[in-house]
Structure formats: structure tokens, C-alpha cells
Amino acid sequence: MTESPPEAPAPSAAAGLAERFGKMVGALSATGDFGTARIRVSPDRWVETHRTLAEHLPFFSFLSAIDWAGEVAVGDPPEGDVEERFEVFTRLSDVSKGEGVIVSTDLSKEDPRLATLVEVFGGANWHEREAHEMFGIFFEGHPHLENLYLPDGFEGHPLRKTFPLLSREVKPWPGMVDVEDMPTTENVEAGEPEAWEEGE
């Protein structure tokens, strides 16, 4: 029912793809690292870019965001310096040719605002609501920018790096009760080495 499979895009093919579409929309940068074609545009050309690309890449896959932060509440801090910003990105593809591109833009953390894409892709609706509640990014012109997953009145934006995972702070990891306390230096110096020797 289908033609022969198209070749998987090699890394260089991804770079070529990014360059071709980047030129089309006047992108700030176009890269093909790790076999993923990525183009970066400025926030004020966000909708325009997608409108242009939609003619060539009609399939809207997803929209999401990344919080680039120097300090994190949970997990490992980034290796090296990062520029504080939100990065919003979408994935568009052409299902018949096997071409796909990541389109991204950077937003300032003080006032993260971006025009909505629901006019171009109706499917952006839920994705933007998710990015709104998880990162606190406002999508101007969105018809219904309410919480999608989180209950009404939830405070904070859980996918921001500053958001603590409270369950682990309120309630310690239950596995800890299995571990016997190690004897401290004070115990040993105070002449209580029994705990140490009992096991032998």
C-alpha cells in the first residue's frame, strides 16, 4: 500500500532540512545536531513562521517548553552556565516525505508571553494550556487559557526548575527506615563502640 520507505535522515540531512526551512522563514539559527533539525526564530515572528511552515509541514506534533535556569530546586544543576530563559518549541512534520523540524523561540523569564498558535493549528490548544500551567507562559489570544491537568487554584508552575517536589521534603524517603544509623565520631570517642562491634 505504500511506496518504498524513504531513507532515514542522516545527521547531515537534518542540517540541510533545517537550513532549507530556516531560510524560508528567516530563522535566527538552523542546526541539525543529533539528527534533529531545529530552527530558532524570534518570538514576534512565532505565528508567522508557523503559518509559512504549515504549508510545507502540515502535521502539528506537539508544543512544549524548557526552563533554562542556573539554579534548580530538585535534581542536578546544569553543567556550565546557562542563559536564564524559557524556550518554547513545536514539532512540525510532513508525514508523506518523512521530514520534521523543531521550531523554537526564547522568552524572557520576567514576562513570558507568546502569541497563540490555535489559529494555525487547532491542536495547539491543549499543548498551550499545558505549557501555561506548567511553566506560567501566557499565550495571548488563546480562547481558554485555564488549567488542564492541575486543579483550579493550584499555585505555582510544577515544571519550573524552582518548583520544589514537596512530597519528598514533607515526608522523607520511606526506604530510609531500613538503614541503621552509622556511628558518628562522637559515639566512638565517647566510648560507645558496641554498635560497631556487635555485628562481628
Binding site: M1, P6, F62, V95, S96, G122, G123
Partner: peptide, 30 residues
């Protein structure tokens, strides 16, 4: 289907010939 990002058997039942195994092959499935 395209505008809403509908994929898989739903999209194929609507006549879109989209299967990632053909469009973006992985793990040697081609």
C-alpha cells in the same frame, strides 16, 4: 487529523498514510 495531531490507526482509518515505521524508521525496522 493533521491539524489536531491525530496519529496512529485513527489517522490511517481517515486515509492518511502515516506510519512512523515508514516515515521515520527506527531500530532497523525498515
Amino acid at each position: 487529523c493533521l491539524a489536531y495531531g491525530v496519529t496512529g490507526p485513527l489517522a490511517r482509518a481517515s486515509g492518511i498514510d502515516f506510519d512512523l515505521r515508514k516515515a521515520f524508521p527506527y531500530s532497523g525496522i525498515e
